[in-house]
Amino acid sequence: MTTLLPPSALPLSKVEQALVDLARKTIDSTTDAGPGEDGIHTMGAAVRAADGRMFTGVNLYHFTGGPCAELVALGAARAAGATELTHIVAVGNHARGVKNPCGRDRQILADHYPNIRVVMTSPGGPVSILASDLLPLGYDYNAEQL
Protein backbone atom coordinates (compact mmCIF):
# COMPACT_ATOMS: atom_id res chain seq x y z
CA MET A 1 0.00 0.00 0.00
CA THR A 2 1.39 3.39 -0.99
CA THR A 3 0.64 6.47 1.05
CA LEU A 4 0.50 9.65 -0.99
CA LEU A 5 1.65 12.72 0.88
CA PRO A 6 0.39 16.16 -0.12
CA PRO A 7 2.80 18.58 -1.82
CA SER A 8 3.11 20.56 1.43
CA ALA A 9 4.79 17.58 3.19
CA LEU A 10 8.35 18.42 4.25
CA PRO A 11 10.99 16.68 6.35
CA LEU A 12 11.18 18.00 9.91
CA SER A 13 13.16 21.16 10.48
CA LYS A 14 15.24 21.78 13.61
CA VAL A 15 12.39 23.96 14.93
CA GLU A 16 9.88 21.15 14.40
CA GLN A 17 12.19 18.58 16.02
CA ALA A 18 12.55 20.88 19.05
CA LEU A 19 8.75 21.02 19.24
CA VAL A 20 8.56 17.19 19.17
CA ASP A 21 11.14 17.04 21.97
CA LEU A 22 9.20 19.56 24.07
CA ALA A 23 5.93 17.64 23.64
CA ARG A 24 7.68 14.39 24.60
CA LYS A 25 9.24 15.94 27.72
CA THR A 26 5.87 17.38 28.69
CA ILE A 27 3.97 14.09 28.58
CA ASP A 28 6.85 12.09 30.03
CA SER A 29 6.86 14.36 33.09
CA THR A 30 3.07 14.46 33.55
CA THR A 31 1.58 11.14 32.45
CA ASP A 32 -0.44 9.31 35.06
CA ALA A 33 -0.25 5.91 33.37
CA GLY A 34 2.43 3.27 33.64
CA PRO A 35 3.62 1.43 30.53
CA GLY A 36 0.72 -0.49 29.01
CA GLU A 37 -1.82 1.17 31.32
CA ASP A 38 -4.73 3.44 30.52
CA GLY A 39 -4.68 6.87 32.06
CA ILE A 40 -6.27 10.28 31.94
CA HIS A 41 -3.11 12.01 30.63
CA THR A 42 -1.39 9.94 27.93
CA MET A 43 -0.76 12.42 25.12
CA GLY A 44 1.32 15.59 25.06
CA ALA A 45 1.31 18.37 22.50
CA ALA A 46 3.34 21.45 21.73
CA VAL A 47 2.52 24.44 19.56
CA ARG A 48 4.86 27.16 18.32
CA ALA A 49 3.95 30.80 17.82
CA ALA A 50 5.36 33.00 15.07
CA ASP A 51 7.40 34.89 17.67
CA GLY A 52 9.18 31.65 18.68
CA ARG A 53 7.36 30.98 21.94
CA MET A 54 6.29 27.38 22.50
CA PHE A 55 3.32 26.18 24.53
CA THR A 56 2.37 22.73 25.72
CA GLY A 57 -0.69 20.79 26.76
CA VAL A 58 -1.73 17.29 27.76
CA ASN A 59 -4.95 15.49 27.01
CA LEU A 60 -7.71 14.96 29.53
CA TYR A 61 -9.22 11.63 28.56
CA HIS A 62 -12.89 11.12 29.29
CA PHE A 63 -15.34 8.72 27.69
CA THR A 64 -17.48 11.71 26.63
CA GLY A 65 -14.62 13.09 24.55
CA GLY A 66 -12.38 15.17 26.77
CA PRO A 67 -9.99 17.58 25.07
CA CYS A 68 -7.07 16.27 23.07
CA ALA A 69 -3.58 17.50 23.93
CA GLU A 70 -3.48 19.60 20.75
CA LEU A 71 -6.57 21.57 21.79
CA VAL A 72 -5.17 22.16 25.27
CA ALA A 73 -1.89 23.45 23.77
CA LEU A 74 -3.80 25.73 21.37
CA GLY A 75 -5.78 27.13 24.32
CA ALA A 76 -2.60 27.68 26.35
CA ALA A 77 -1.05 29.59 23.45
CA ARG A 78 -4.09 31.81 23.07
CA ALA A 79 -4.30 32.41 26.83
CA ALA A 80 -0.71 33.70 26.65
CA GLY A 81 -1.59 36.07 23.82
CA ALA A 82 -0.17 34.06 20.92
CA THR A 83 -2.43 34.69 17.93
CA GLU A 84 -0.24 33.56 15.02
CA LEU A 85 0.72 29.90 15.30
CA THR A 86 3.16 28.15 12.98
CA HIS A 87 3.59 24.51 14.10
CA ILE A 88 1.89 21.83 16.20
CA VAL A 89 2.67 18.24 17.22
CA ALA A 90 1.29 15.54 19.52
CA VAL A 91 3.20 12.61 21.00
CA GLY A 92 2.22 9.60 23.06
CA ASN A 93 3.54 8.78 26.50
CA HIS A 94 6.14 6.05 27.11
CA ALA A 95 8.06 6.78 23.88
CA ARG A 96 5.09 6.04 21.59
CA GLY A 97 6.31 8.85 19.34
CA VAL A 98 4.52 11.33 17.12
CA LYS A 99 0.79 10.71 16.76
CA ASN A 100 -1.37 12.06 13.96
CA PRO A 101 -4.26 14.34 14.94
CA CYS A 102 -7.72 12.82 15.25
CA GLY A 103 -10.55 13.86 12.94
CA ARG A 104 -11.91 16.50 15.32
CA ASP A 105 -8.47 18.09 15.70
CA ARG A 106 -7.94 18.04 11.93
CA GLN A 107 -11.23 19.84 11.40
CA ILE A 108 -10.41 22.45 14.05
CA LEU A 109 -6.93 23.02 12.62
CA ALA A 110 -8.27 23.28 9.07
CA ASP A 111 -10.98 25.74 10.15
CA HIS A 112 -8.99 27.98 12.49
CA TYR A 113 -5.32 27.48 11.58
CA PRO A 114 -5.18 26.35 7.92
CA ASN A 115 -1.56 27.53 7.52
CA ILE A 116 -0.15 25.85 10.64
CA ARG A 117 2.31 23.05 9.93
CA VAL A 118 1.27 19.77 11.59
CA VAL A 119 3.95 17.21 12.44
CA MET A 120 2.70 13.77 11.41
CA THR A 121 3.96 10.27 10.80
CA SER A 122 4.64 8.94 7.32
CA PRO A 123 6.16 5.73 5.95
CA GLY A 124 9.50 7.56 5.63
CA GLY A 125 9.41 9.11 9.11
CA PRO A 126 7.89 12.26 10.57
CA VAL A 127 6.97 15.10 8.22
CA SER A 128 5.17 18.40 8.58
CA ILE A 129 2.07 19.12 6.51
CA LEU A 130 -0.10 22.20 6.19
CA ALA A 131 -3.33 21.82 8.14
CA SER A 132 -5.26 22.83 5.02
CA ASP A 133 -4.06 19.56 3.44
CA LEU A 134 -5.28 17.31 6.27
CA LEU A 135 -8.86 16.99 5.01
CA PRO A 136 -9.00 16.69 1.24
CA LEU A 137 -12.56 17.44 0.12
CA GLY A 138 -13.35 18.17 3.77
CA TYR A 139 -16.22 20.14 5.21
CA ASP A 140 -15.56 23.90 5.05
CA TYR A 141 -17.08 25.31 8.25
CA ASN A 142 -16.25 28.91 7.38
CA ALA A 143 -17.95 28.71 3.99
CA GLU A 144 -21.16 27.48 5.65
CA GLN A 145 -21.49 30.45 7.98
CA LEU A 146 -23.82 33.36 7.22
Score class of each variant (00 low, 15 high):
59 N>L: 03
12 L>P: 02
15 V>N: 09
68 C>E: 12
100 N>I: 05
9 A>C: 06
88 I>H: 06
133 D>Q: 03
129 I>R: 00
30 T>I: 07
140 D>S: 12
117 R>N: 06
94 H>E: 08
121 T>S: 07
70 E>M: 14
109 L>S: 01
50 A>E: 13
54 M>F: 06
119 V>I: 15
99 K>V: 14
110 A>P: 03
99 K>A: 07
94 H>F: 08
18 A>N: 08
11 P>S: 09
15 V>A: 15
103 G>T: 08
63 F>W: 14
118 V>M: 05
68 C>K: 09
123 P>Y: 05
37 E>C: 07
104 R>S: 10
33 A>Q: 00
109 L>I: 06
42 T>A: 01
55 F>K: 00
47 V>Q: 00
80 A>W: 08
13 S>W: 11
145 Q>V: 11
27 I>N: 02
126 P>L: 04
58 V>D: 02
68 C>R: 11
65 G>T: 10
89 V>E: 04
100 N>H: 08
68 C>M: 14
59 N>H: 12
129 I>F: 08
95 A>R: 13
54 M>S: 11
20 V>H: 02
67 P>N: 10
85 L>Y: 02
53 R>S: 09
2 T>A: 11
79 A>N: 11
23 A>D: 05
136 P>E: 12
123 P>E: 00
143 A>D: 11
58 V>I: 13
128 S>K: 01
14 K>E: 15
74 L>C: 03
